[in-house]
Computed example of a mutant assay.
Amino acid sequence: MTESDAHNQQHWDRQGWVREMVRQHQSPLIRYARSIVKDEHAARDIVQETFLSLCKQAPGDLAGHEVAWLFRVCHNNALNRLRKERRMSHNSEHMGALESPENATKAVENAQDNEAVVRLIDQLPSNQQKVIRLRFHSGLAYREISEATGLTVSNVGYLLHTALGKLRQQMQQLDA
């Protein structure tokens, strides 16, 4: 095999690897980024930036840690976006549903419920917010959350347990 053939094979392997990572992880990454920036288009941009960063990595360097790396880079990209824009956007996707009074009432109630939960999550300490989003928005397992955050698996479990307890208590207080 010539040096040129080896280079072409390496290039093809990397392309296939990146395509597979996109296929497997694009949707969960978009959900995760959207949970942070609260905007679908911004989330898609953030995930695109994440995969562009992946293209610069050698597959062997990330072997076995691809998921953690992707979520860590996505998280950092999302925080950078928030810092740069210094704005908290609210979803406007329910506006189209306001055509009839019944739909408007349901849309407003759903939006209020969602906003209340988001506000409660936003009041949690940042490490609890992160594990909540990784677990419930992105569907990561405790081990994957551990790899993405650098926390131990037992610490992830503790943070989730504590955060969910706080959220449950705060939601009961709101209902009272």
Rank of each mutant, 00 (worst) to 15 (best):
M1C: 07
S4R: 13
Q9D: 08
W12H: 02
G16D: 09
W17S: 04
V18W: 01
E20T: 08
M21W: 00
H25C: 01
Q26K: 12
P28I: 02
I30T: 04
A33L: 04
R34C: 03
R34H: 05
D45F: 04
I46R: 13
I46S: 02
E49K: 12
T50C: 06
L54K: 08
C55P: 00
A58Q: 12
G60V: 10
L62Q: 11
L62K: 09
L70N: 02
R72Y: 00
V73Y: 00
V73L: 01
N76Q: 12
A78P: 01
A78H: 07
L79T: 00
L82Q: 05
L82N: 10
L82T: 02
S89F: 03
S89R: 12
M95D: 07
E99G: 01
S100P: 04
N103G: 09
A107V: 04
A107Y: 06
A111K: 01
Q112G: 00
D113M: 09
E115W: 11
R119L: 02
L120Q: 06
D122Q: 14
D122Y: 06
L124D: 06
Q129E: 10
L134E: 09
R135V: 02
S138Y: 00
Y142K: 12
I145R: 08
T149P: 01
V153H: 09
V153F: 09
V156Y: 11
V156E: 15
G157C: 08
T162E: 15
T162S: 08
K166L: 08
L174Y: 13
L174G: 01
